[in-house]
Design a protein around this nucleic acid. Structure first.
Lengths: 188, 188
DNA sequence: GTCTATATACGGATAGAC
DNA sequence: GTCTATCCGTATATAGAC
């Protein structure tokens, strides 16, 4: 380890993350990433020995970033309802990317499941980090044992919206469903 | 055309369909399909010239099958609520496949979107056939202009359930959400 | 129609010069 | 550390024998 401070490594991970999201994991080659970063294929292998290794770095970075963001929200906002609304609003603020490429987390998990890739179990940590945070917010909102189940429900709702908005390339549908989702939140 | 009666061709399409579902489109090679059908690669190319051609056949067959099934349901059942319940029950009856490989339609659309594949527009007909049928059922149920929007909502709900059940390989969650979905249907 | 080569391209991964 | 050159496997697709 001790790689965290390596700027080039971070640039590679950022490029890989974007390309995996836009083109898919399998469909993205080392050449694609190397070209995007501006280094040669050979140099690339100095930083990452295998494709799985970079996938692992991409997932790890995303999990960390998600946890960081949610922790920040918990610090900056006191109302759990407001926090969840912020969470739902990600759909709207990323509507262009979502209609073009789907949800970066959902689509990666879907692909890894097809590849029977062992790293699916690491990838779904990107989901469970959200699930656990949402569960906490729902508990603060007064929900009891059912909080976790409701959190999973919300997770699924956002995934469904992303999948359909992507399949139909339909931003209007996405915004409609976000409105619907906020009404649902208000009814809790 | 005139290919419809060709038994071997149908077997190839059925194999391709299954393999695309289980392994993904890109990750499935001609060798995989040929081996599964029990023919040589060379023979394969006699029936389908390109990979896109077989993808097209797979999608066409699925669209036809979906329309056929829904038309059958409309014939055999009179209560629109019962029909929609039947639709929701697909999730339960396919729970093993869904937790292992996701929704065959949603995951294919997700993959084609990543590949910027032109056939995404054909693939989402698998969805719109369902949307249109659901819209009709909801109209019979007494809904007005909002019927189509509610149909899209239901579509998204099922997709979200499939994506999350797949990512977590969680059948229990799937069944929970199906129950939830039926409560929602009852409240319409 | 079905088969066995085979052409060609590209993928991941390595070796070794600088 | 970064590069070029290369190995090797596999993929799509074609040619041509039977």
């Amino acid at each position: 380890m001790g790689h965290k401070g390596d700027a080039l490594r971070q640039r590679i991970v950022a490029s890989a993350d974007q390309l995996f999201y836009q083109q898919g994991y399998e469909n993205t080659s080392f050449s694609d990433i190397a070209e995007d970063v501006g280094i040669s294929r050979g140099n690339f292998y100095y930083h990452f020995k295998t494709k799985d290794e970079i996938l692992n770095a991409v997932i790890d970075t995303r999990v960390t970033d998600i946890e960081q963001m949610l922790k920040e929200w918990s610090k900056q906002y006191t109302d759990p309802r407001e926090r969840i609304e912020l969470y739902i609003d990600i759909l709207t603020s990323h509507q262009d990317n979502i209609t073009s490429h789907g949800c970066p987390i959902g689509s990666l998990c879907t692909e890894l499941a097809k590849l029977s890739h062992v790293m699916l179990h690491d990838a779904n940590k990107m989901f469970s980090a959200q699930r656990d945070w949402l569960t906490m917010q729902l508990r603060e909102l007064g929900l009891g044992k059912e909080a976790r189940q409701v959190a999973m429900h919300l997770l699924a709702r956002t995934q469904g919206i992303a999948t359909i908005a992507n399949a139909f390339e339909d931003k209007t549908f996405l915004r409609q469903e976000v409105k619907h989702l906020k009404q649902w939140l208000g009814s809790l």
